[in-house]
């Protein structure tokens, strides 16, 4: 006879518990935990079969100074973020924010229709909608009855 001795723990609960434990350990070793993003701006991309939406976190920049270009399936964002100039006698206590010029390119999931690319900027988040190129869309092939 097979007897199950222990209730099998729910895998998601277990993972959540492990994550909390790890977070706590990290906090103990690295008290000043920041957003560990080696690149600026950090980008996320959402896709479906009709297109791709790319969001980038670029706080504190004049939206008209952001340059966006698309070549085939490569999206490039560049710009410059200037930090306030300090007068004589003023000084920084902390400098953690990125400053200066930046350029980032990412490969998109598919070639896009460059004429219909749309970008908006709100609260420091740039959102670029890139519809998929017509030529690249999957075509349905009908099966005929012989």
């Amino acid at each position: 006879m097979i007897v199950r001795r222990y209730a099998i723990p729910n895998a998601w609960d277990e993972l959540g518990r492990m994550q909390r434990d790890l977070d706590q350990m990290m906090r103990a070793f690295v008290p000043d935990r920041g957003r560990v993003t080696p690149v600026f701006p950090a980008m996320n991309a959402w896709t479906n079969e009709d297109g791709e939406i790319v969001t980038a976190e670029i706080p504190g920049i004049d939206p008209s100074a952001i340059e966006i270009s698309v070549v085939n399936d490569v999206l490039t964002i560049s710009g410059e973020r200037a930090l306030p100039e300090l007068a004589e006698g003023e000084r920084y206590h902390r400098r953690e924010r990125m400053n200066g010029k930046f350029t980032r390119s990412i490969q998109l999931a598919f070639p896009v229709n460059v004429d219909k690319v749309d970008a908006s900027y709100e609260n420091g988040v740039l959102t670029i909608a890139l519809p998929r190129a017509e030529a690249d869309r999957p075509r349905k092939i009908a099966v005929k009855n012989a």
């Binding site: 935990r33 920041g34 007068a87 003023e90 920084y92 953690e96 990125m98």
Partner: peptide, 12 residues
């Protein structure tokens, strides 16, 4: 929860 990147400067 993230710790936001911060600059602090001091003027007169």
């Amino acid at each position: 929860v993230y710790s936001p990147r911060t600059d602090i400067y001091e003027t007169a």
